[in-house]
Design a protein around this nucleic acid. Structure first.
Lengths: 252, 252
DNA sequence: GATTTCAGCTTGTCTAGAGATGTTGGGATC
DNA sequence: GATCCCAACATCTCTAGACAAGCTGAAATC
């Protein structure tokens, strides 16, 4: 979840991005024919399978559709919701949230804003973490982006005494993320999480997600407990639900 | 939309179906590792890209996820809704509804039950079509399947006098479907359509879709008008909304 | 014992072909 | 004029490689 973006983009991704950009710019309109496999092979000097893969990205996202023997066309109607963010589970906590995408290539949430500080936690959170009055918490605030669009704000509170000197406070928490570091410290976490459908309140968070106040969002409250029952982390998240949905919300 | 199923299935599709079957049967459980590219190459005697394509089908449907350098695994949580049925539009009416799928290979709705008869239409429908009392309508009842699962019932009413002798009454309406035949008869249609979220009423239709009464469904009422304003077709559809969603419902 | 290195495995990207299959439109035929 | 045939072109399937990049665990080193 803290992996840095790939330095070099695959060719097929670059071609797909080019096409998407041109569609967004109105160069190709719904119903228009897109450059086909042969066109892309000639234009970009790539093999057929690579051109195909580029067009496959657009088809997987519902932006384009191919008609055999005819060509590839911009779709008239396309799905608004294209991706789900996989529920945090026991098996995935090592890597945090992972993104399910219709693309063949899997993508990950990337952190694009990070701040780490020690300060007092809000009263309720301090109580959950068993902090004495005035005892500081380590607060990690992160913003996650998917395809350049901010989708998730996360504030993580940990007892400062617990994580002193740990890599947890580094910008890159290392393989396995926060929970793996906690496990190394002898606090292998099991978390409890609840989601609430809500609407974006006005304020700083609305701006950071570039969402108008009132936009539907998910609020996620997560508490991680160590095996001895001690709460070791409180994580509060705000998630844009217009573009992205927590996967298990599909059942609702 | 009336295209017959492929006689020979592509290798990658057969491999993907095999894997899906084994997952459904519990042979591979969520979190389990699936046979990788190399395994499938050896087992089925196919090239790497073919094995990859098979695994890509499962990934595109959200059933499996690949972890680079590790393997391919059955996902813990998967989306319930995997596909959308594209809204019938001016551009697509020639081919009827087409299915958008995350798969690279596009699939189509197939008709698996068909009946054509001349009989009196229900009063409301007869009124819309401008039928005199006792004047018969040509009624085409169809059931559509996607991946073997019935998803859509469609009853189409056309003035019998209008379509007498036309290929419209053939089981296979030919290229372009019903609307192309109407166009040939000089009634190029423009349709109006509304969707209603509802619940499956008990009765024959529930059985034909293998849905328990009360299951959420979409009811679609569609009226096709010729350019002179005369209604030429009334189409009533019931659509399983649990597995499949009309695409423009995404906006809701 | 703790750390580092690395071989071996995995999936990801890409090539340069080949043939199959579906669509379209024009020309030859009736 | 209407129908049939076919060449051209498009996507679809598949092959047999190659190298890149990420992960894991064991061996070597500190």
């Amino acid at each position: 979840m803290t992996s840095s973006p790939r330095v070099t983009q695959p060719k097929y991704q670059r071609i797909a991005d080019d096409l998407k950009r041109e569609i967004d710019a109105g160069r190709y309109r719904p119903g228009d024919r897109l450059p086909g496999e042969n066109d892309l092979m000639a234009t970009y000097g790539v093999a057929r399978m690579t051109a195909r893969q580029a067009l496959g990205v657009l088809q997987g996202e519902g932006i384009a559709e191919a008609r055999r023997g005819v060509g590839v066309f911009v779709r008239e109607f396309r799905p608004i919701r294209r991706r789900g963010i996989q529920r945090l589970s026991d098996r995935t906590w090592g890597g945090g949230a992972s993104v399910w995408s219709a693309d063949i290539a899997s993508r990950e949430l990337a952190v694009d804003q990070l701040s780490v500080a020690e300060r007092e936690a809000p009263e309720q959170i301090a109580a959950v973490l068993g902090l004495k009055p005035g005892e500081p918490a380590c607060v990690r605030s992160r913003r996650f982006v998917l395809d350049g669009k901010p989708v998730l704000l996360s504030d993580s509170y940990l007892p400062a005494a617990l994580v002193a000197g740990s890599r947890i406070t580094d910008p890159d928490t290392g393989p396995g993320g926060t929970y793996a570091r906690l496990a190394e410290l002898g606090h292998k976490p099991v978390h409890f999480q609840e989601q609430i459908r809500s609407r974006m309140p006005a304020g700083d968070e609305a701006e950071r997600l570039a969402l108008a106040p009132g936009t539907p969002v998910f609020l996620v409250h997560r508490i991680a407990f160590a095996e001895d029952g001690q709460a070791v982390e409180v994580n509060e998240m705000v998630l844009d639900s217009a573009s992205y949905i927590l996967e298990y919300d599909f059942d609702a």
